[in-house]
Amino acid sequence: MKLIVGGYAQGKRAYLETIVQKIADGGLADEKTLEEAQGIDKLHLLAARWMEQGKDPTVMALTLAEKNPEIIFVCDEIGCGIVPMERKERGWREAVGRMCCALAAQAQQVERVICGIPMVIKS
């Protein structure tokens, strides 16, 4: 399992497309598409969908990685701003951060993309 993180619009998706072909959109894809994908983009949106269903994003993402050990997750970094006023938004931000820490701890490789340039921060 690999994890790619970075801020909004930094070229993560374009980078992912150079590595794998079968990419699922975390904001839209159904369960089957997610399980069959080589790469899952917008994991932060998938986390929000899981939370809407009362599921823990960390557990869900780790389960996907267990089923598909070659999976590549792509997630926006969303924690580097002012604490949101909405409790729900704070909870989502917190859950995405914890999920990424847990994935990074288990990942063979973690990359961070800025200006389209991937930097390996764990290998």
């Binding site: 969303i78 924690g79 580097c80 604490v83 931000r93 951060g97 914890r98």
Partner: peptide, 8 residues
């Protein structure tokens, strides 16, 4: 330094 829930 780090963002929210970054493990800092």
């Amino acid at each position: 330094l780090g963002g929210a829930a970054s493990g800092k």
